[in-house]
Design a protein around this nucleic acid. Structure first.
Length: 831
RNA sequence: GCCGGGGUGGCGAAAUCGGCAGACGCAGCGGGCUUAAACCCCGCGGCCGCUCGCGCGGCGUGUGGGUUCGAAUCCCACCCCCGGCACCA
């Protein structure tokens, strides 16, 4: 560094304006021609490092949220590349999904054509960002050579026993006309279109994510935001308790069920059971219904089936239910327990049945009150006088009315009773999760077909690997009938059975698009491999991802599914490690200028293209980073970007306009410039390490202002000034890749600024020799001293007492204590 | 209801191992340059009071208490906003 000749042109030459448009286009072309952003799998001199930003859905235009997510992510990847890593920073397209199909239904283009056009537009918009994406590794999930491997993944999971087909009540979106995973239902409504969700009984494909529930729960070690890890833990919802089997009073024949199993977290309350509640969808409902109750039960079940999730989940409505006419027996006391049906029991949690303990569960309490059932206390509150309860008693207490367990603390009785059940073969300790298996069937066209064939003779058969992909036919009708459009395509449905070769039918549902995005980050490692989804070598070279960034709205969907896939891949010996994303950072959400979510209907959308056109890509990138802390997000104020534009103009001016230079300038001034440069370097480096882009930009602005002022204050030392300019270009490189490249080349270099090593701050220059030290009297500031940073306490006190103002506040009182924090402040405590 | 995160100038924010509150920027105000303009330059800027002024004093980080020489930062109680979960037995 510092090899710049002292040949500054005379001042007064006509200044060239900063013109981002032409600069940015020129350097992007140059990078592409030189392959600056192409990342080899191995670089003998650099360790591999994998940075990843979530790929965009192909909705049509890159919106400001994409820029907000990707631009800082790119700056971070660039920083690590300059720090010496061989950084992979890929991009691609999440290209299957409902919007494409809905556009087709509304009379637009075919989903494939619509998607292709969108990808072309978005690819160009992405290029405009100037990010270091390695475009040779781009993937699109709708490409047959991608979804071939999504299907291969399905079959891998199938062979591992992790994919199964089951008839079960499923979330049905009444507007999208398809099923949804639990994670895609928000407050009883479709996550995407907000239409009401109801339950439909359908044969559907599930992925057994629950097999990994325990391991997925263990996420404490991950370097992820705590709130995201917590969301996942809450979503998985591990609950310890016991299962108890209640024998039926009148079991049916040898083949039928002879008992009802329940899960409870309160085995200590088993003797307080006065009723049993089955979910309306419970498989035993029909059998247990007596003739006398049949009409009432059927009516109740019918109504439950018709009501939407939102109606059923309302917690403030009175408990409803109906008696089946049957009884079961308490396994501990052999008491008769009436069996009811009520919709507060959920078919999908535990066993779908609840033992009703009204004295010690608020819901059961309300139910018992509603229907006049007894409420016997079995866990006595402290100093309980035997009177009836006004509400369920949920706290620990002393066991009563529980036979041999009476007198025991209820916390002990939990385990004692669970063990007792186990010994007698009536259940025992167990763990239940809130997490459900992942429903992946979608009755839609625009997704990867599930590679299964149904044969009347051989049953369900996986499509052999060498017949993949099961390709989507182009010519189909997109009517949303609630059945997959593929079902009406004769050419698609007809298949030969892989086992017997006879006539068979293909599965016509497609896969949830979260399947596609659960492994895309693996495909980037080896995007063109036609033999494997990802080769062992490529996986070893890049996985797991070192730094992932993206929105936390995916906490319980994508981020959980991807972890599940990774663990299944690990168990199949395909990938190293246990977790796909070592470090993950979630940026906040960018909002409209009015502080609300941007949407066309609100008319508060700011298009990135217009911002880039007006201010340049670098300015737009920097402004998004400058808004505030990245994890926080916030409103986009279109007026604020002028501040960035002014700053970059100033950068341009400081870095390109002629300055009076002398071989050896005034030493104090030269040192001041060098100090500013290195102090800024230390700040910028620290900020990038901690992903604090807003303060990084502020530090660069301060630095620019310092250079601006010192330029005006007379002739500059050529060495110090040259170094200051080079450091400016290097420090700008992560945030403003185009401008930095331009300035780097104007400083006389031929190679790319983005291939330079990140400079090291000189500690000696970072340290300050003198500081302005506030002097407090009794904690209130009464003066300031400019003193050497390492001044000792005695010298500082003396200097402080020399101040008239400090003395006047001491007012002749005695100093009883002095507190001196070198470099920070001096406090004189007087009495 | 439960669990997270957060309340700092007109606005976005900075400063959290307790040590100068408001860096940096927007908007605003005053001045300059210009025939004119600002995506130009210089300057001012928390609030109140005293002062011609230099200055000086008081108040001030959602509210009320507390700990401390010293609190935006730590503790207790409360209010408000955002996010997640919510009849999960």
């Amino acid at each position: 560094m510092g090899g710049r000749p002292v040949t500054a042109p005379a001042r007064g030459a006509r200044a060239e304006r900063y013109d981002p448009t032409s600069i940015e286009r020129r350097w992007r072309d140059w990078w592409d021609e030189r392959g600056v952003n192409t990342t080899p799998d191995h670089d003998p001199e650099r360790p591999n490092r994998y940075h990843l930003t979530m790929f965009p859905y192909t909705s049509g235009d890159l919106h400001i949220g994409h820029w907000f997510a990707m631009a800082p992510s790119d700056a971070l990847a660039r920083f690590h590349r300059m720090r010496g890593s061989n950084v992979l920073f890929p991009i691609g397209f999440d290209a299957f999904g409902l919007p494409a199909e809905n556009a087709a239904i509304q009379g637009g283009a075919h989903p494939a054509d619509w998607t292709r056009a969108n990808i072309e537009r978005m690819r160009e918009q992405l290029r405009g960002m100037g990010a270091m994406f390695d475009l040779s590794r781009e993937v699109a999930t709708n490409a047959p050579d991608y979804y071939r491997w999504t299907q291969w993944w399905f079959l891998l999971l199938y062979r591992q026993g992790l994919a199964y087909r089951k008839e079960a009540p499923a979330n049905w979106c009444t507007s999208c006309n398809t099923t949804l995973a639990n994670e895609q239902v928000l407050e009883g409504r479709c996550e995407r279109c907000h239409a009401l969700v109801e339950q439909r009984r359908l044969a559907q494909w599930f992925l057994r994510i629950t097999r990994y529930a325990d391991e997925l729960l263990q996420n404490e070690e991950l370097d992820w935001p705590e709130h995201v890890k917590l969301m996942q833990r809450n979503w998985i919802g591990r609950s310890e308790g016991a299962e108890a089997a209640f024998p039926l009073e009148a079991p049916e024949g040898a083949s039928g069920a002879s008992e009802i199993r329940v899960f409870t977290t309160r085995p200590d309350t088993l003797c307080g059971v006065t009723f049993m509640v089955l979910a309306p969808e419970h498989e035993l409902v029909e059998r247990l219904t007596s003739e006398g109750q049949r009409a009432a039960v059927e009516e109740y079940v019918r109504q439950a089936a018709q009501s939407t999730d939102i109606e059923r989940q309302a917690t403030d409505r009175p408990k409803s239910g109906v008696f089946t006419g049957s009884y079961c027996l308490n396994p501990l006391t052999a008491e008769r327990v009436p069996i009811w049906i009520a919709d507060y029991a959920l078919a999908s949690y535990g066993t779908g049945a609840v033992m009703g303990v009204p004295a010690h569960d608020q819901r059961d309490f309300e139910f018992a009150q509603q229907f006049g059932l007894p409420i016997p206390v079995v866990v006595a509150p402290p100093a309980w006088d035997g009177s009836p309860l006004a509400a369920a008693y949920l706290e620990p207490g002393t066991m009563v009315g529980s036979g041999q367990f009476d007198g025991m603390p209820s916390e002990e009785a939990k385990e004692a009773i669970a063990r007792h059940l186990e010994e007698r073969g009536q259940g025992g300790p167990t763990v239940t999760f809130r997490l459900r298996d992942w429903l992946i069937s979608r009755q839609r066209y625009w997704g990867a077909p599930i590679p299964i064939v149904y044969c009347d003779g051989c049953g369900e058969q996986p499509v052999p690997d060498d017949e993949l992909p099961v390709e989507l036919p182009y010519d189909v009708e997109f009517l949303p009938t609630g059945e997959s459009p593929l079902a009406r395509s004769e050419e698609f449905v007809a298949a030969a059975c892989p086992a017997c070769g006879g006539a068979a039918r293909r599965e016509t549902d497609t896969m949830d698009t979260f399947m596609c995005s659960s492994w895309y980050f693996m495909r980037y490692c080896d995007p063109h491999n036609s033999e494997h989804a990802v080769s062992a070598e490529a996986a070893a070279a890049w996985l797991p991802v070192d730094q992932y960034t993206g929105g936390s709205e995916h906490a319980t969907m994508h981020l959980l599914y991807a972890r599940f896939f990774y663990k299944a891949a690990r168990d199949a010996g395909l990938v190293p490690g246990d977790e796909p994303f070592t470090r993950y950072f979630s940026q906040g959400q960018i909002l409209g200028p009015d502080g609300r979510r941007m949407s066309k209907s609100r008319g508060n959308v700011v298009a990135p293209d217009t911002q880039v056109e007006r201010w340049g890509s670098d300015a737009f990138r920097c402004y998004l980073m400058f808004l505030g802390p990245w994890e926080q997000g916030g409103p986009y104020d279109p007026d604020g970007i002028v501040g960035i534009a002014r700053w970059l103009n100033r950068v341009w001016s400081v870095a390109t306009e002629p300055v009076d230079l002398v071989e050896a300038g005034e030493p104090g001034a030269a040192r001041a410039v060098r100090q500013a440069a290195h102090q800024t370097l230390a700040r910028v480096t620290g900020d990038l390490e901690r992903l604090r882009f807003n303060t990084m930009i502020a530090a660069l602005m301060e630095y620019t202002n310092t250079l601006w002022r010192s330029r005006e204050s007379g002739a500059q030392d050529s060495g110090a000034w040259g170094e200051a300019q080079e450091l400016l270009a290097l420090m700008l490189a992560p945030a403003c890749p185009h401008l930095a490249e331009e300035l780097w080349h104007r400083a006389g270099h031929d190679d790319s600024v983005h291939r330079q090593p990140w400079p090291e701050a000189d500690e000696e220059l970072v340290r300050r020799e003198t500081v302005e030290l506030p002097v407090q009297v009794n904690g209130r500031i009464r003066g300031r001293l400019t003193i050497p940073a390492d001044a000792d306490e005695e010298a500082v006190c003396q200097a402080a007492l020399a101040s008239e103002r400090v003395r006047s506040h001491l007012d002749g009182r005695e100093i009883v204590r002095t507190i001196y924090i070198p470099g920070r402040m001096l406090n004189l405590v007087a009495r």
